Computed example of a mutant assay.
Amino acid sequence: MNLKKMLLVLTFIIGCIYHAQTLHLYGGADQDQYLGCLNCDNFDKNSVWNKFSDYGNPFSSKSIWNTYGNYGSTYSTYSPWSAYASYPPAILDENGNFLGFLTLNPYKSDRSELELALIVCKHHEEIKKDVGGWYERLFR
């Protein structure tokens, strides 16, 4: 299956599954730093897909898309993009239920197996370059 077809299928699946519950990211050693909503609309002020929000802006200290920040660097122990992160962001639903960690670290116990988390981890480098475009691919 080519990438375009795969993305269309995944878009449908994600749209059906993930709009049923809101997924939030929390980072830091104690997971007490809010890092935004993983599946909120790209106009939502808390969305990681809103490039004008604290959580979607690639220059914000609270953004997973900030290549030089604690939560977006490939070297930070708090970043999902570090293959060795000890404290990657936790994914919680709107009721506070833990759904796993958003991380590239294959050895991290409780790594999220949510389809959206796996897609974001797999394509994070491309997503950083075009957050809005990827939002459209994944959710529209």
Rank of each mutant, 00 (worst) to 15 (best):
G96N: 09
R111S: 07
G132M: 09
L102G: 09
D93P: 05
P80D: 04
D110A: 11
L92F: 10
T103L: 04
L99K: 15
L118N: 06
D93N: 15
N97Y: 14
A90T: 07
L104N: 09
H124D: 07
S112A: 08
I127P: 00
N97A: 12
H124C: 10
L104D: 01
A85V: 07
A85N: 05
K122Y: 11
G132T: 14
F101K: 08
I127D: 01
K128V: 04
S109C: 00
D110L: 07
Y87S: 09
H124N: 14
W81M: 01
L104S: 05
E113A: 11
W81C: 00
I127G: 00
R111M: 04
D130T: 12
E94D: 14
Y107T: 11
K128I: 07
E126Q: 14
E126I: 10
S112G: 01
L104E: 09
W134G: 02
P106G: 06
E115K: 15
L114V: 13
G96Y: 06
L116Q: 15
H124M: 02
G100D: 11
N97R: 15
T103D: 01
L116K: 14
E126G: 00
L102F: 08
L104H: 09
I91R: 00
H123L: 12
G100W: 06
T103W: 03
P106L: 04
P89Q: 01
W134D: 02
T103A: 08
V131I: 15
T103N: 06
P89W: 05
L116D: 08
G100T: 13
I91T: 10
L114T: 13
A117Q: 10
Y135G: 08
D110F: 04
T103M: 02
G100H: 11
V120I: 15
H124L: 00
W81P: 01
K122V: 09
I119D: 00
R111D: 00
H123W: 14
E126T: 11
V120N: 05
E115M: 14
L104G: 05
S109Q: 11
